[in-house]
């Protein structure tokens, strides 16, 4: 599995994580899923968790999910995943991530240490929901 995106989009994703620090930042990946999966645009969103939980939780509200589907339709793209940051934590999915994960989606996680984005990795949930497997990120 592989996820292709431009260096500019990766920079935008990491900048969003830095701006949200020390809270978690999140948004949608819009793109196409054919012979290869490619991110063409991102939709950064507001973390809808209550204040006290934003340092280790993110929530994209139902209304934002609907708006994202409409925006993807408008652009002739599909929702293909979600990005979020892990402030001062590794960029591996947590058990909480797995419990709440959707199939099909790519999940890009960026580790942000002391306000600086360190690295992004992408993951997909396996069919039986037992774990995530990493997919290679290719930038161009």
């Amino acid at each position: 599995m592989m996820l292709r995106l431009s260096k500019d989009i990766l920079t935008q994703i990491q900048a969003h994580g830095e701006q949200a620090y020390p809270e978690e930042g999140a948004g949608f990946l819009l793109g196409s899923d054919g012979v290869e999966r490619a991110v063409k645009s991102i939709l950064p969103l507001t973390n809808s968790r209550e204040d006290a939980a934003r340092h280790n939780r993110y929530l994209i509200a139902p209304e934002d999910y609907l708006k994202a589907e409409l925006e993807a339709d408008r652009l002739g793209l599909s929702l293909i995943g979600v990005f979020h940051s892990h402030p001062d934590h590794p960029n591996r999915p947590s058990e909480f991530d797995r419990d709440w994960a959707q199939p099909f989606f790519s999940y890009i996680i960026t580790s942000v240490d002391s306000g600086k984005a360190i690295e992004s990795r992408s993951w997909r949930l396996v069919e039986d929901r037992s774990q995530f497997v990493e997919e290679e990120i290719q930038t161009n």
């Binding site: 280790n56 999910y65 979020h84 999915p93």
Partner: peptide
């Protein structure tokens, strides 16, 4: 409509406001 949520493992093993 799915609620999209996640986060790091931590002390807060709570649910999510949906």
């Amino acid at each position: 409509i799915p609620s999209i949520a996640g986060g790091t493992d931590g002390v807060q093993a709570d649910g999510v406001q949906t």
